[in-house]
Each structure stands twice: as structure tokens, then as C-alpha cells.
Design a binder for these strands. Structure first.
Lengths: 188, 188
DNA sequence: CTAATGTGAGACAAGATTGTCTCACATGGG
DNA sequence: CCCATGTGAGACAATCTTGTCTCACATTAG
């Protein structure tokens, strides 16, 4: 019958639409999600058992995209600074989805997807490496830097959505602020 | 009859409780909000016409606390860096409430309280001053720095709530990251 | 052509939340 | 004492969202 490919395409398309809509309106109805995806509510329920399952699928998608981004960023190569810049650049396509998931505090209360722990570990390792090499300061903990990175990604995604930051500046704004801060440097 | 003072105290107490609860569980019911404040749902409705009015009141409270914090921070005095540090320190008591409001994207869609614009202007002015004095780099726009400050405050409030950041480190973690970034400085 | 599959539209009940109401009770002033 | 005011508890209808169901239609393989 060969419909599995079509199903997968539809499912992915639905997830993308849902992510785009829920990023803007996190309280959107299943009906609104369905309309945004161009399908009926019945079909939406055939793909995702309920709203919970949809959010979980979005969570899994966000984790998968982040892990793929970290893979592409080759975090072990070069200096920690360059690794952070590559990481931010590769994460940009998933920024909107991440911003939505970051605001879904419902996910963190009990037992979240272990994928978040894996991501935290991988990202935190970059900051640990930078500290051990003497590249990064040691008074800002890797845990905080990781958390701050998430927050800056969500903030920038929001600012982009409102037109306050240009999409082309995403990487520069986040990476430069996270690495160098607002102060001018004496030596360039 | 002199009940206005008692009413005001009650109203403020209810707002504080609601802020503390909604920061943790943004989907809390009016009944849960009432129970958290130690009053009945009927009394809650006597103070705030509905959930919408409650959120609006929380928004007004957050704006007022932020403006008071900016007043205390004396943003025009000293270097821009020190102004930022004072600003973060004074904002800390309102961080939880701000984190809740920051995630309530419903507030920003149409016409928000003009108080946010006033706050953005006052905070942005600090970054403009730092750039004009040569203290801050100019490739990070004041608008983005303002947005990033909100994001870092929300992130740190969340990390504190989960125990990943100690409350005593709030000012240092945010101000140092925002100002100096993660990179080590050659000259201290 | 025929049948199977996926889909859209809509009906339907169940559940949750909200807003409003009434009533009884406690407290404090006159 | 008597009464006004504020409160808690609960009932109530209205609304919204959800999950499930049925039915008709389109598409496509056999």
C-alpha cells in the first residue's frame, strides 16, 4: 500500500505547523492546530491521540533537532568559543520550537524526557571544556551558562518573531552576548 | 468604616500568592489561586472580576515593581556597568513575577500595558549610554540587550526555582554574563 | 469496475472551568 | 443588643475543550 511515507510526511508537516502555531499562541485549541495544518480535527486525532501526545511529539522533535544540531556543530573540534558559535548557528532552525518548549514548564515538573538531560550534558561539556582550557571564566557555572543559552535562544526567537531582531543576526547576537558580553574588549 | 486599608492588604496578599503559584503552574485554576491565597473563590472574584483581570493586575504589579526597582537603581549615576549591576540587584525580588509574565505571551500579542514600553525605554537607555560612552560594544543593539536581560532574568528565576542556581548568585550570574560574557578577560 | 483506505464534516457526551447567585455565619461598630 | 459588612460554602447554568463516534466522499490499487 505504501502509505507509510505519506503518513510520515503528513505527521512531520503537522508537527511543524503545530510548532509554528503554538510558539505564537501556546493555548491554541486542537481545532486551531488542525486548521493551521490544513487538516481536520479528526485527522489530527488519528495522528496524535490527544493534546498531550502532540506536545510530547513536539518535545521529541525539538530534542531530536537539537541533538542533530549538536552533531553538526562538532562540539569537540577547535576552541570552545568556536564550538559555541557553531552550536548557536546550528540550533537556529529549531529556535522557535525550543522557545515554545521552554515556556511549557509543564514538561519539567515531574519526569521529563531524558533527552533534555543528554542535551544539557553535551552543552554543559562545551563550557566545562572552555573552563578547563582557560578560555572561559570559572565564576559562571556551566549549568548556568547552559540555562542562559536556552534563555537567550528563547528570547531571541521571540524578538525575531516580533521583528525586533533580524533573523540573520540570530547567531551573532546570541553567541557574542553569551561569549563576550556587552562590555567592549581592549584587545580585539 | 476604614476597611479600605484591609482590602488593600488583602488584595496585595492575594496578588503575591497568585504570583508565587502561577510562576510555578501557569495553568492554575481560579480555585487553586484562591486556595493558595487562603480565601474562597467567591472572595477572589470579589477582588478580581475574572481570571483576565487577575492577570492584568499581576501585570500591573510586575510593572510597578520593576519601575520601583529602576528608581532604586539610580540608572543615571556612575558607569553604565554599575548601573546594570544595580538594576539586576534591585529587580531580583520581582524576578519570579517577571518570569511568569514573560511566559504569558498572551499579553504581548495586541496592545500591552504601556508600562512595558516605559520599562524597555528606561532599560534600553542604560545600554545606549554605555555605548555612547564607549563602555559597551556597539554591535549588540540596545533592543537586543534589553530583551536578553529579560530572558536571563526569567532563566535565572527558573533555575533558582529548580535549585540549579543559588538565590545569592542571582545578581552575579546575570550581570556578569550580560556584561562580561563567558570569555576570560586578559586584564582583570 | 470494485473495494479498501484515508479524509472531512459533524454530532455527541463527558469533563473542566468560569461567572453568578444565594444563604448562613462571624465580626465589629453604633 | 442590633445591624451592617465581609466572608465561606455551595449550587447553578453557561461555555469551552476534549475524545469518540458515524457517515459520506475522494483516491487509488487490484
Amino acid at each position: 500500500m505504501g502509505y507509510s511515507c505519506l503518513m510520515a510526511l503528513d505527521r512531520d508537516h503537522v508537527l511543524r505547523s503545530a510548532a509554528a502555531l503554538l510558539t505564537r499562541k501556546s493555548t491554541a485549541t486542537m481545532d486551531e492546530v488542525a486548521k493551521a495544518a490544513g487538516i481536520s480535527r479528526a485527522t489530527l486525532h488519528r495522528h496524535f491521540a490527544g493534546r498531550d501526545a502532540l506536545v510530547r511529539a513536539l518535545e521529541a522533535l525539538g530534542i531530536a533537532e537539537c541533538e542533530a544540531a549538536l552533531d553538526r556543530a562538532r562540539l569537540d573540534e577547535g576552541s570552545a568559543s568556536e564550538a559555541v558559535r557553531r552550536m548557536v548557528r546550528e540550533i537556529q532552525p529549531a529556535a522557535g520550537l525550543l522557545a515554545f518548549l521552554y515556556g511549557e514548564n509543564q514538561l519539567w515538573e515531574a519526569d521529563g524526557d531524558p533527552g533534555w538531560l543528554r542535551l544539557d550534558t553535551r552543552i554543559g561539556a562545551v563550557f566545562v571544556r572552555g573552563q578547563q582550557s582557560g578560555e572561559f571564566r570559572i565564576d559562571l557555572t556551566p549549568v548556568w551558562l547552559t540555562e542562559a543559552l536556552y534563555g537567550l535562544i528563547a528570547s531571541c526567537a521571540w524578538a525575531m518573531h516580533d521583528g525586533r531582531v533580524a533573523p540573520k543576526d540570530f547567531t551573532h547576537m546570541i553567541a557574542e552576548l553569551l561569549l563576550g558580553g556587552a562590555l567592549r574588549r581592549e584587545e580585539s
